[in-house]
Design a protein around this nucleic acid. Structure first.
Lengths: 119, 119
DNA sequence: GCCATTGGTACCCTCAAGGGAACTATACCA
DNA sequence: TGGTATAGTTCCCTTGAGGGTACCAATGGC
């Protein structure tokens, strides 16, 4: 019974981190600090306005990031990591470290998509 | 340029861990060691045969777990974590730890879905 | 008057993840 | 003869994540 509950903890963290863009957004905000929408967008080639807005809103809803609107024209909105969001750093670090070796491994075993031709 | 590549590392780890059941499967295999299909299934109430098979296959394809078939009747198949799969442990641990405090936090702020009524 | 800028929103589409239910093969047991 | 157990597979369906395109509002610059 307790165990069932325990297993959900993973889903909690995953639920926040999954999404094609969320980890990337978080790393940008963690590394480079507060940034406005357009700057984030420029740093993520391939993302659409719609997607970036959506992901940012979701992270904001989870209280992982903070959104500050400056009532100017043209609009200015700045995003930053919250204290709480910063607590995700260990996970992101662990994932990054693991990912690095995973890619290294993949490249080692399929440098040219070879399949143990050397028997 | 380098940075772009770096950001993909997260996706690598996420791609393996996402899925409603994969983290749960991995934790079971990490904690309790080698186990056969039916035992795993029993430990995961709610999962269907189809789903469990699928997730196990995917993990096997990634070389995260190992599948050993005993040619008996009725069939016996045992699953276990590979050396490589064990390298995911830090991530799972980080996620679990974070998830625990996240749940604690959630329960603290919405014990009865109250909204700062105490002003 | 017209265009660019910024940070969005609205509408619609596609594809994959997840899942339900039924079926399979083979041997043992009663 | 029929039921049970194990580890699947097949077919079909639903939902949601992701994404493309177009549009908006207000102002400054030419």
């Amino acid at each position: 019974m307790k165990k069932e509950v325990e297993f959900c903890q993973f889903q909690e963290a995953l639920g926040i981190l999954v999404g094609k863009w969320k980890p990337v957004i978080l790393v940008h905000l963690l590394n480079d600090g507060t940034q406005r929408f357009s700057v984030l967008k420029r740093k993520m080639p391939g993302i659409t306005q719609r997607m970036l807005t959506k992901q940012l809103r979701e992270l904001e809803d989870e209280d992982i990031i903070q959104r500050v609107i400056y009532p100017e024209i043209p609009p200015k909105v700045e995003y930053s990591i919250t204290e709480y969001g910063r607590s995700l750093e260990p996970i992101l670090e662990a994932m990054h470290e693991w990912g690095s070796s995973h890619v290294a491994r993949k490249q080692a075993e399929e440098p040219e998509a070879q399949e143990e031709k050397l028997s």
